[in-house]
Simulated scan of single mutants.
Amino acid sequence: MISIDPAMQSDHDNYKLLIGSVVPRPIAFVTTLAEDGVLNAAPFSFFSIVSSAPPMLSVSVQRKQGVMKDTARNAIATGELVIHIVDESVVEAVNVTAANLPPHESEVALAGLTPVTSESIRVPGIAEAKIRMECVLERSIPLGGSDEASPACDLLIARVVRFQLAEEIYEHGRIHAAKLNPVSRMAGNDYATLGKLFSIDRPQ
């Protein structure tokens, strides 16, 4: 085994080890509204389930040189966001939204995606996504960095207030994974599809 002390190497080197080890990672495609009404969108793979009662999700939004990204700033300001699950049919358009645009320009328009009105919150979702979850911001937690004044990320805890699901992927209260065709993030520019599925019975 190779033993590495993260304190003895750069943040970038630790980042490479993490994104190469914690794989595959689901991708949260998040829309938020800026104060001037511009619809912001961006993908994040530091993303997971927090709770089912109530349903809550976590999205970690990394800061750039200590500066908060539009997604975190908008979500904190408005208290709302829509989290979409990325599938094969939208992954290329979602990748376009990762471009660095000024806050007054919409990544949704750049990617040619279609905004759709949400039922429970003001932030629009994206019509092309098979799963979108309308959320309110439960909590935001600045974390990491060299000191409290310079956090490395903003951990957003989002509570789902409405599930919007494409009919073809929903069966008897469950999501049909093969019809969803989710895409996950690997390291570098690599992505993964669903691949082989297998089952193991849990111990009694």
Rank of each mutant, 00 (worst) to 15 (best):
D5S: 12
H12T: 13
L17T: 10
I19V: 15
P26Q: 09
V30T: 03
L33P: 05
E35C: 00
L39D: 06
F47D: 04
S48T: 15
S51W: 06
S51Q: 05
M56D: 04
S58F: 10
V59D: 10
S60T: 10
M68G: 00
I83C: 15
H84L: 07
V91W: 13
A93E: 04
A93R: 11
V94E: 07
N95A: 13
N95H: 12
N100M: 11
E105H: 12
E105W: 07
A109I: 13
L110Y: 07
G112R: 05
T114A: 06
S118K: 00
S120K: 15
I121E: 11
R122M: 11
G125D: 11
I126W: 07
A127H: 13
A129E: 00
E134P: 00
V136Y: 11
S140C: 08
G144C: 08
G145A: 04
S146Y: 12
E148D: 13
A149R: 12
A149G: 04
A152F: 03
L156V: 02
A158R: 05
R159D: 08
V161M: 09
E167Y: 01
E167M: 01
E168G: 02
H172C: 08
H172A: 14
H172V: 09
A177C: 04
A178W: 09
P182L: 07
L194I: 03
K196W: 12
I200L: 15
Q204T: 13
Q204C: 00
